[in-house]
Design a protein around this nucleic acid. Structure first.
Length: 216
DNA sequence: AACTCGGGGCA
DNA sequence: TGCCCAGAGTT
């Protein structure tokens, strides 16, 4: 197991905070419900495309009750420029019915309750918990998974285990910020295909960089 | 844990 | 055409 020790983890977290001091959720929302919808829409899409769609959508529909005035065909038309729009429209309306019938129209604040909603998996549920309610949660998506493993904050081929390792090694009060910084790093520099290692301030602490640049 | 689903954008 | 995009659900 090559997971880094607490002192080196602290150094990495500090370097990340210096590199991405402003890292934050880039989905636009004003209520927990809006974030829930935006996050469901963002799966296999980009926040830029999602924001474009939700700007129009949320101007007219802001609550489960208001969404339920839309037919599935209406909603599909509204979100058509986002991928997977058919299943997303169906899931969002089903989630709105569940919110109305099981949670009094409010977005629940626990992981199992959120995950019981159609179209809401572990990652989406954690994004809502952390960004809408400020409840510490570390969601592992493709960026977090890749970057955390490259940096040696985790060492696993499985998402669940990566999540446990990150939660063990990162102080709880830093989960939310760190989550955003790992994603920003993954998107802006440490991409899947060709990471821009040149000029990266994390080189000295990166297992991936060491592996690729080790003298043969 | 592996597999399936599934759509727009961009090279 | 092939690959990516801040996954979810089923087996």
């Amino acid at each position: 197991m090559i997971i880094k020790n607490p002192s080196e983890v602290a150094v990495i977290l500090e370097l990340l905070s210096q590199a991405y001091p402003q890292a934050h959720c880039e989905l636009n929302f004003t209520t927990p419900f809006e974030l829930l919808v935006a996050t469901v829409l963002s799966a296999q899409s980009t926040d830029q495309r999602v924001n474009k769609v939700t700007a129009r959508l949320f101007a007219q529909h802001r609550t489960p009750a208001e969404f339920l005035r839309l037919s599935q065909a209406d909603l599909e038309a509204e979100i058509q420029e986002i991928g997977l729009f058919r299943s997303k429209a169906k899931n969002i309306l089903a989630a709105c019915r569940a919110l109305r019938e099981e949670f009094g129209g409010a977005v629940p604040r626990t992981l199992p309750e959120l995950m019981s909603l159609p179209g809401v998996g572990r990652k989406t549920a954690k994004v809502v918990l952390s960004n809408a309610f400020g409840i510490p949660a570390l969601a592992v998506d493709t960026h977090v998974f890749r970057v955390a493993n490259r940096l040696g904050l985790a060492q696993s081929t499985r998402v669940e285990e990566t999540e446990r390792q990150l939660e063990a090694v990162i102080p709880r009060e830093q989960w939310i910020q760190t989550h955003h910084r790992l994603i920003w790093h993954g998107r802006r520099r440490c991409g899947a295909r060709k990471p821009a290692c040149e000029g990266c301030t994390l080189q000295a602490h990166c297992e991936y960089f060491c592996l690729e640049h080790r003298p043969k």
